[in-house]
Amino acid sequence: MNLNGTTALVTGANRGLGRHFAQQLLERGASTVYAAARNPEAIDLPGVVPIQLDITDPESVARAAATATGVEVLINNAGISLHQNFVTGDVDAIRREMETNFFGTLHVIRAFASARAILNVNSRLSWLNYVGANGYAASKAAEWSLTNGVRLELPDALVTGLYLSGTDTDMMAGYDGPLNDPADVVRQALDGIEADATEVIADEDTALTRAELIGAA
């Protein structure tokens, strides 16, 4: 799919990967980029159209869909990680992760189901558990299933999953391991859309985990 001249919407576009998505879509010639965030005043990227969107609030999603008409490319980037374990963690926090990463993404997809391309920002933890982030991993495993299911239900659309390990964004603040460059991750993702790819694997660690998953199947 050629992104030049398209109308796109990016959730969570005020920072991190979302801001890079909005910027690089403009650089690839998108005619309109709706940059969505809970607080649109926080969006400081010239050339985009800021809109208010809380993906966990169906009324907010409906308002955004009424405002951002004609969306052809939907980037589901908004998400949270609250660093919860299953046994000792806060159940309400685990529920918030699921409400945001799974149900929030679902709300947005349903509202923009006419898009020609849908990309969900998933995670290596869609396929792997990690002590200290098991609640997040469960929500991303659900989002992986959501991505695959929507692909079956919308056969005329390109539905792409982006899978990545730790990336240098606010979500990974304090992590002292290697981190992906967010601009490079987004470049790979948009290259994937333009190549009609259904999965984009952003780094070697994620590729290894995916290969192990396939090998265990």
Rank of each mutant, 00 (worst) to 15 (best):
M1C: 11
M1W: 06
L3E: 01
G5T: 10
A8T: 00
L9W: 03
L9D: 02
T11S: 11
T11E: 06
G12H: 04
G12D: 03
N14T: 10
G18Y: 03
F21R: 03
F21Y: 15
L26W: 02
E27K: 14
Y34S: 06
A36R: 01
N39F: 09
L45R: 01
L45P: 00
V49P: 00
I51E: 04
Q52N: 07
D54Y: 09
I55C: 02
T56Y: 07
D57F: 11
P58Q: 08
E59Y: 02
V61K: 09
R63N: 12
A64L: 08
A66Q: 14
A68F: 10
A68C: 12
A68Q: 05
V71Y: 00
E72T: 07
E72C: 07
E72Q: 14
N77F: 12
G79A: 10
G79P: 00
S81I: 11
Q84N: 11
Q84I: 13
N85C: 10
F86I: 14
A93V: 04
R96D: 15
R96W: 05
M98L: 15
E99L: 14
F102E: 03
G104W: 03
G104Q: 03
L106F: 12
L106S: 03
H107N: 15
R110F: 01
F112Q: 04
F112E: 04
A113T: 02
A113D: 13
A113S: 14
A115H: 08
A115P: 05
A115R: 07
R116F: 02
R116I: 05
N120S: 11
S123H: 03
S126A: 15
W127D: 11
V131F: 10
V131K: 09
G132F: 04
G135D: 05
G135S: 11
Y136K: 05
A137Q: 04
S139R: 05
A141F: 03
W144T: 10
S145F: 14
S145Q: 13
L146N: 01
T147Q: 11
G149V: 12
G149Q: 12
V150L: 07
V150E: 01
L152E: 14
L152S: 12
L152K: 13
P155F: 12
D156G: 10
D156R: 09
A157E: 04
L158Q: 09
G161F: 06
Y163S: 09
S165F: 08
T167Y: 06
D168T: 10
D168S: 15
T169G: 07
M171A: 13
M171D: 02
M172P: 00
A173H: 06
A173Y: 02
D176V: 11
G177E: 10
G177A: 12
P178Q: 10
P178F: 11
A183S: 13
A183P: 00
D184S: 15
V185I: 10
V186Y: 01
V186A: 07
V186D: 02
L190D: 04
L190P: 00
D191Q: 12
D191V: 07
D191W: 07
G192L: 08
D196Y: 06
A197G: 02
A197C: 13
A197M: 12
E199S: 10
I201S: 06
I201A: 02
A202F: 10
E204D: 15
D205Q: 13
A207Y: 04
T209D: 11
R210L: 15
L213E: 09
L213V: 13
I214T: 07
A216M: 12
A217I: 11
A217E: 05
